[in-house]
C-alpha cells in the first residue's frame, strides 16, 4: 500500500544530511513550512544550501535556521525584507554565501530542474550585472542568457490539503514555489493542514500530483511567522 503520511515532523526530516541542498517554499511568510524548518533545526543538519525566495524574518523559521549557522549558501531573489536581520548580518561578516537570482529565473531554474531540462535561455537580466560571465546567444535578433537548472536533495513545502498518495492543494498565494519545488527535489516533504481521503480532492483540482511528493505530515494549525516575530519569539523556544 502506498502511504506517504508520516506521523511526526521529526520523522519527516530525519534523513536530511550535512551538505544537502534543500528547497524551502514560501514568499515571505506565505507558504513557509515553519514547523518542518524547526524540525530541521532540531535535527541538526548543517552546511546546507538553501533555495528559497527570501531569507526569513525575525529569529523563527528560515531566519532561525540561518541564525544557527546551518546554512552555507542561500540561493534566492530577495534576501532582505522587513524584519530580516539575521541574513544581512552574517552576509556582511562574510559568513554566508549568496547567489542572487531574479525571481522568475529562480522559478524557471527550479521548474527546469524538475522537468529534466538542464539549462535554458532567458531574456531576463541581459545587460545587467546578474548576467556577467554567463553564456549568451542570439535568437531572432534578441540576446538571451543561459541559466542552469536547480535540483535539490530535499524540498520542504507547505500545503493546505494532502492525501496518502501525496496529491496536494495549496492555499491562495501560499502556493508560490511549492508545486515546482516538489518536482525539483529527490525527496519532497510536505506539511499539510488537512489530511483527506483518496478521492476527496477532485482530480481536476489536484495542484501537485502525488508522484512528486515523498512524505506528508499533518500540521493542523501552523504557526504564523509574522505573529511570532511580533512577539519576539526565537526558535528553539
Amino acid at each position: 500500500m502506498i502511504n506517504k503520511i508520516v506521523t511526526s515532523v521529526e520523522e519527516a526530516v530525519q534523513d536530511i544530511f550535512d551538505g544537502a541542498t534543500v528547497m524551502i517554499s514560501g514568499f515571505g511568510e506565505a507558504g513557509s513550512p515553519i514547523e518542518l524548518i524547526h524540525a530541521l533545526i532540531d535535527q541538526g543538519a548543517k552546511n546546507l544550501t538553501i533555495v528559497s525566495n527570501n531569507t526569513g524574518s525575525g529569529e523563527v523559521g528560515l531566519a532561525a535556521l540561518i541564525a544557527h549557522k546551518r546554512v552555507k549558501k542561500m540561493i534566492c531573489s530577495f534576501p532582505r525584507t522587513a524584519n530580516s536581520t539575521v541574513f544581512p548580518e552574517l552576509y556582511k561578516k562574510g559568513e554566508i554565501e549568496l547567489e542572487l537570482v531574479p525571481q522568475g529565473t529562480l522559478a524557471e531554474r527550479i521548474r527546469a530542474g524538475g522537468a529534466g531540462i538542464p539549462a535554458f535561455f532567458t531574456p531576463t537580466s541581459v545587460g545587467t550585472p546578474l548576467a556577467e560571465g554567463k553564456e549568451t546567444r542570439v535568437f531572432d535578433e534578441l540576446t538571451y542568457v543561459m541559466e542552469n537548472a536547480i535540483k535539490a536533495d530535499f524540498a520542504l513545502v507547505k500545503a493546505l490539503k494532502a492525501d496518502r498518495y501525496g496529491n496536494l492543494v495549496y492555499n491562495k498565494t501560499a502556493r508560490n514555489f511549492g508545486p515546482i519545488m516538489c518536482t525539483a527535489a529527490k525527496t519532497a516533504i510536505v506539511q499539510a493542514e488537512q489530511l483527506v481521503e483518496l478521492g476527496d480532492i477532485d482530480p481536476e483540482c489536484v495542484v501537485t500530483p502525488g508522484i512528486f511528493v515523498k512524505r506528508v505530515v499533518k500540521i493542523t494549525n501552523p504557526a504564523q511567522e509574522s505573529k511570532l516575530v511580533a512577539e519576539n519569539r526565537r526558535y528553539p523556544w
Partner: peptide, 14 residues
C-alpha cells in the same frame, strides 16, 4: 549593501 532583485528584471524583460 545586500543585493536584492526580486521580479524586476523579469518584468522589464517580458
Amino acid at each position: 549593501a545586500i543585493p536584492a532583485v526580486g521580479g524586476a528584471m523579469d518584468l522589464v524583460a517580458g
